[in-house]
Measured scan of single mutants.
Amino acid sequence: MDALKSAGRALIRSPSLAKQSWGGGGRHRKLPENWTDTRETLLEGMLFSLKYLGMTLVEQPKGEELSAAAIKRIVATAKASGKKLQKVTLKVSPRGIILTDNLTNQLIENVSIYRISYCTADKMHDKVFAYIAQSQHNQSLECHAFLCTKRKMAQAVTLTVAQAFKVAFEFWQVSKEEKEKRDKASQEGGDVLGARQDCTPPLKSLVATGNLLDLEETAKAPLSTVSANTTNMDEVPRPQALSGSSVVWELDDGLDEAFSRLAQSRTNPQVLDTGLTAQDMHYAQCLSPVDWDKPDSSGTEQDDLFSF
């Protein structure tokens, strides 16, 4: 819950932080000083300027060897085509990944977070970031790969997607708890209302004896509580940590079903599988986004697919 609360507080303090972009060759504004600060901008989305290598189908939802083989196929196909790589912007948030063309600003792909089953910074092609997700059109699994400016960037994108998945799962947990509370309150309110109706004398007997209905007592009954809980029953509950912020979080049926399955089948359902080692994760978390744009010590960066 700490990640969720800190993310909400950060967004309320400075929503404009989320509009910064990394990996864009110096076009961005001043960047936060450390990885923790940038992680807090996830709610509205972190932007990464990358190059799209392509996509291939895979048979399993996750796995280092599986993704490595898929990336190898994608890279080989991209090299064989001889075409310049498409420059894209990857927007990562707890909602998922939005992929747009840098030149036309046209939407290429919009992947809900619950469809993503794996992401990684490839070991062999260490400047490549990739994720595996279920197609929104059918049940097939797709591996999408992107060329980053350097290994640090690939690791940073991988960690960002993993963190977005974690925050999304926490949102789901909060929403589920809130819905259970509202359902319980609604049920209790309905029981109270039913009890009051059972003990209320029939209207005919009131008229016969000349008694008047006590409207004041009726007004004191917990009807307002019942209506408050039943009027918006169809509205999706939102985490309290975000009250007053500009973010509107809505959970669709697909996300609810997917996270429910994860909660039942996995020990740590909030953790998205990645190909990063503990050492890689520690190294990337210690980086400032400013470091992502620094040239690798191995030599001059080449803006070309064939540089790796």
Rank of each mutant, 00 (worst) to 15 (best):
K5A: 09
S6W: 10
S6E: 12
S6L: 15
G8F: 00
G8Y: 00
R9F: 13
R9T: 14
A10N: 04
A10E: 15
L11W: 05
L11T: 09
R13F: 15
R13G: 14
S16V: 07
L17P: 13
L17S: 15
A18V: 06
K19F: 08
Q20L: 11
Q20Y: 15
S21K: 15
W22S: 08
G23R: 08
G24M: 11
G26H: 05
R27W: 10
R29H: 14
E33D: 13
E33S: 09
W35M: 04
W35G: 14
D37K: 08
D37S: 09
T38Y: 03
T38F: 11
E40H: 15
T41Q: 11
L42M: 13
L42W: 07
L43W: 15
L43M: 11
E44W: 05
M46S: 12
M46H: 10
F48N: 00
K51Y: 00
K51E: 01
L53I: 01
G54I: 01
G54D: 00
G54S: 00
M55Y: 09
M55V: 10
T56W: 09
T56H: 01
L57E: 08
V58G: 01
E59L: 09
E59K: 15
E59G: 15
E59V: 13
Q60A: 09
G63P: 13
E65A: 15
E65W: 06
E65V: 13
E65Q: 14
E65N: 11
S67D: 00
S67T: 11
S67H: 00
A68D: 01
A69N: 07
A70L: 02
K72D: 06
V75M: 01
A76F: 04
A76H: 02
A80W: 02
S81I: 12
S81T: 15
K83D: 06
K84C: 12
Q86P: 11
K87M: 09
V88I: 02
V88P: 05
T89D: 09
T89G: 08
K91A: 11
V92E: 00
V92D: 00
R95A: 01
G96E: 08
I98W: 00
I98N: 04
T100I: 07
N102R: 01
T104Y: 07
T104A: 05
N105F: 14
E109R: 11
V111P: 06
V111C: 07
V111S: 03
S112M: 01
S112G: 06
R115Y: 07
I116W: 00
T120N: 12
K123M: 13
K127C: 00
F129Q: 00
Y131S: 00
Y131D: 01
A133H: 11
Q134M: 13
S135C: 11
Q136K: 14
N138W: 04
N138H: 15
Q139H: 12
Q139R: 12
L141G: 03
E142C: 09
A145V: 00
A145Y: 00
A145M: 00
A145P: 00
A145R: 00
L147M: 00
K150M: 10
R151I: 01
K152P: 06
M153W: 13
A154C: 05
Q155A: 05
A156P: 00
V157R: 00
T160C: 13
T160G: 13
V161W: 01
V161I: 06
A162I: 05
A164C: 13
K166N: 06
E170V: 05
E170Y: 05
V174H: 03
S175F: 02
E177W: 14
E178F: 11
D183K: 13
K184Y: 06
K184F: 14
K184Q: 12
Q187T: 05
Q187G: 04
E188G: 05
G190M: 02
V192I: 13
G194L: 13
A195H: 03
A195P: 08
A195R: 14
A195I: 03
R196S: 11
Q197I: 04
D198F: 11
C199D: 04
C199R: 13
C199P: 11
C199L: 06
P201L: 08
P201I: 02
L203W: 09
S205K: 07
S205M: 10
L206R: 08
L206F: 09
V207Y: 02
T209R: 15
T209S: 09
L213M: 12
L213C: 08
D214Y: 06
L215R: 14
E216A: 08
E217A: 14
E217W: 01
T218Q: 07
A219Y: 10
A221R: 02
A221D: 05
A221P: 13
A221F: 08
L223Q: 11
S224C: 07
T225M: 13
V226M: 09
N229C: 07
E235L: 07
E235C: 07
P237R: 15
P237Y: 10
R238P: 14
A241P: 13
L242I: 05
S243G: 12
S243D: 08
G244I: 06
S246N: 14
V247C: 14
W249F: 12
E250P: 03
L251H: 10
D252K: 08
D253H: 09
D256V: 04
F259S: 02
S260F: 03
A263T: 10
R266L: 03
R266F: 05
T267W: 08
T267C: 08
N268A: 07
N268L: 03
P269N: 04
Q270A: 06
L272S: 02
L272I: 02
D273F: 05
G275Q: 04
A278W: 09
A278Y: 09
A278T: 06
D280Y: 06
D280L: 05
M281V: 11
Y283W: 10
A284N: 14
Q285E: 06
C286G: 13
C286V: 10
C286R: 07
L287E: 10
S288M: 08
S288I: 05
P289N: 05
P295C: 02
D296Y: 06
S297G: 12
S297W: 08
S297N: 13
S297K: 10
E301G: 08
D303M: 07
D304S: 12
L305I: 13
F306C: 13
S307T: 14
S307R: 13
